[in-house]
Simulated assay, not measured.
Amino acid sequence: MLGLEYFSFAALFSPLFLAFMLLVTAAYFVVIGPLSEKFADAEPVSIGKKIMFVSGMFFLYLAQGGPVSLLGHIMFTFHMTSMALSYLVATPLIMLGIPTWLWRAFDRINPFKKLGFLTKPVVAAVVFNGLFSFYHIPAIHDYVMLHFAVHRLYYIVLFIAAALMWWTLINPLPEKHQASGLAKIGFIFLNMVLLTPACGLIIFSTQPMYATYSDPNTWAKAMGYCVSGDTSALLQTFGGPSFFYGLSTKVDQQLGGIVMKFIQEFIFASMLARVFFRWYKSENKEDDDDIIPTDLSDGSLNRA
Rank of each mutant, 00 (worst) to 15 (best):
V127S: 08
F7K: 08
Q178N: 11
F112G: 11
S205K: 06
A125S: 14
M260H: 14
M209I: 14
I94K: 00
Y87I: 12
V259W: 06
K113Y: 02
M80T: 13
Y6E: 09
A220Q: 00
I51V: 15
L115M: 11
V157M: 09
K285H: 13
R152D: 02
I47P: 01
A273G: 05
S228L: 03
W101A: 00
F189W: 14
L88Q: 04
W166S: 00
A273P: 01
I32Q: 09
S214L: 04
W103K: 08
M75Y: 14
I74V: 12
G257V: 14
A27Q: 04
V127W: 03
G181L: 01
F187S: 06
W279V: 00
R274D: 01
S82R: 11
F13P: 02
L247T: 12
A105Y: 15
S242N: 06
A198R: 04
S36K: 11
D288M: 09
K176A: 13
E43P: 10
S46R: 12
I47S: 12
H136L: 11
Q207L: 13
Y61R: 02
I47D: 10
S8L: 04
D288R: 14
T206W: 03
E5Q: 10
P241Q: 01
F13E: 01
P67H: 02
S46G: 15
K114Q: 13
W166F: 07
S282K: 10
M145C: 08
A27I: 12
L35E: 08
R278I: 00
V89R: 05
Y225V: 06
D215Q: 06
T100R: 04
I292W: 09
I258S: 06
G66P: 03
P197D: 09
Y135W: 13
F128A: 07
M21G: 01
F29T: 04
P174L: 05
A162Q: 04
L153K: 02
Y28T: 08
T77I: 14
L247Y: 15
V144P: 08
R108Q: 08
A162S: 14
V30R: 01
I74Y: 09
P34S: 09
L195R: 05
V126T: 10
N129I: 14
M145F: 12
A26S: 07
L201S: 11
F20S: 13
Y28I: 07
L60F: 04
T168D: 04
F189N: 11
T100L: 01
H136E: 13
L301C: 07
S8Y: 05
V24E: 08
L247W: 15
I156Y: 10
L272H: 03
P208Q: 07
K49W: 02
I170R: 01
I291L: 09
S248Y: 13
L164G: 02
A19M: 11
V122D: 08
V193R: 10
S228C: 00
L234V: 01
Q264Y: 04
T25H: 05
L158C: 10
R278Q: 09
Q253M: 15
F132P: 04
A125L: 05
H151Y: 08
M52S: 15
L93A: 08
F189L: 15
G256W: 13
L2V: 06
L88I: 10
P172M: 05
A105K: 15
A27F: 10
I291P: 00
L301W: 10
G257F: 15
T212W: 11
K38E: 11
L296Q: 15
R274M: 03
F268R: 02
L255G: 15
A63G: 07
V193F: 15
G66Y: 02
L164S: 01
I51Q: 09
R278S: 05
A139I: 13
Y87M: 11
